[in-house]
């Protein structure tokens, strides 16, 4: 009898291990393709604290470069952004980050405030699957699920990705137990150039009121930062293509909110001259996002403002931090160089 029980227990254990292995194998790795999906998880590899935390959607991880902030100002920063990162996802990610560290300021890009409801399962996955299991992750999942999604499938991703067994590639085996780092402290480098050719405006909307849910989470972010003694700075990246248009009416609402709550709000749209942006060379997708050259210009410009406003002096004198960051900067420059090589 005892032998039978032991055999059954061993079988069950073997099954659980097999399922665990299958889960590791079948989950998308986001290494060669759709690298945005790997961004959120990379934060946990950080060994040093940061002066600044950027949060938001693609406009943060494509427009601000932490290595440039280090190189020019000695400021340490991290971008916690992913594709179509919704306001509540940003909030819960921020909550999770502020449990781990206390930066001087949090910079939130406001574009995603146009979303008031869960949008897309694939983007949800890219943001949420990378989060470590925590109360914040569970809350973020609950707030983000679209129809047909289940909490269980986030806790056991095998339930979601089981059907990938017939599309496994070499990448899935290669990155079974580890992942490469695809970003530079959350910045996803794009070295291509596709000039902006149109100044088309966005289509008119029936209602320009930013969704109450989005504004609720913005307020939650503000309260959280206030509680932790961290400054909250609102920004809007300079990109404004007709596909991802930032309406004046939205801008006015954010400006009013910032004023009412004594927050800084920087809308970089239209500041091309001051920043030095050239839309014929500084975008990789026709103006929807900046490439590395544009991002460096914007970061350089914004870095000065941040240092001035927050009184940041940098950490160049701290040998330990400097060593970590110089290594990051080298990796950044190497990739930039590689991208420049035809």
């Amino acid at each position: 009898m005892k032998k039978k029980i032991l055999c059954c227990a061993a079988l069950l254990l073997a099954t659980v291990l097999l399922l665990g292995f299958l889960q590791l194998l079948l989950m998308p790795k986001y290494m060669a393709d759709k690298q945005e999906g790997a961004l959120v998880g990379e934060y946990y590899r950080e060994t040093t604290a940061h002066d600044l935390l950027f949060i938001g959607d693609c406009e943060v991880y494509e427009c601000f470069t932490p290595p440039t902030l280090w190189e020019e100002y000695g400021v340490t920063s991290y971008i916690r952004g992913s594709a179509q990162q919704l306001p509540w996802q940003s909030y819960y990610l921020l909550e999770e980050m502020l449990k781990r560290e206390t930066p001087k300021a949090v910079v939130f890009n406001v574009y995603a405030l146009k979303y008031g409801t869960p949008q897309n399962e694939a983007y949800n996955r890219m943001t949420l699957d990378g989060m470590q299991l925590s109360r914040e992750k569970l809350s973020a999942i609950r707030a983000s699920m679209t129809e047909g999604e289940s909490l269980l499938s986030y806790l056991l991703p095998l339930l979601r990705f089981h059907s990938r067994w017939d599309e496994l590639s070499a990448e899935d085996w290669q990155y079974l137990f580890h992942r490469d780092t695809v970003s530079h402290n959350g910045y996803l480098m794009q070295t291509g150039i596709l000039p902006k050719t149109s100044d088309r405006e966005g289509v008119p909307l029936a209602d320009y009121t930013l969704p109450a849910t989005a504004m609720f989470y913005l307020e939650q972010m503000r309260l959280l930062c206030e509680e932790k003694g961290v400054a909250l700075i609102l920004v809007k990246a300079p990109t404004n293509s007709w596909r991802y248009y930032w309406y004046d009416e939205w801008d006015a609402q954010i400006a009013d909110y910032a004023e009412a709550n004594r927050l800084s709000y920087y809308n970089f749209i239209g500041l091309d001259g001051e920043i030095g942006l050239d839309w014929s060379t500084d975008t990789y997708d026709g103006g929807a996002h900046l490439n590395v050259y544009g991002a460096e210009k914007l970061t350089s410009y914004f870095g000065e403002i941040l240092c001035r406003e927050l009184g940041l002096t940098g950490h160049r004198e701290n040998a330990e931090i400097a060593a970590v960051w110089e290594e990051k900067l080298d990796a950044y420059k190497q990739e930039r160089e590689k991208g420049n090589t035809p």
């Binding site: 055999c7 059954c8 099954t15 299958l22 399962e121 339930l159 089981h162």
Partner: peptide, 28 residues
């Protein structure tokens, strides 16, 4: 034969979880 049953149940569970037509991408 409890051990064989246990093995069969484990195999079925793995087969269902892996090859079952359920979840996102399939019609509920």
């Amino acid at each position: 034969r409890p051990i064989l049953l246990c093995a069969a149940l484990c195999l079925l569970a793995v087969a269902i979880l892996l090859f079952g037509a359920y979840g996102i991408g399939y019609d509920a």
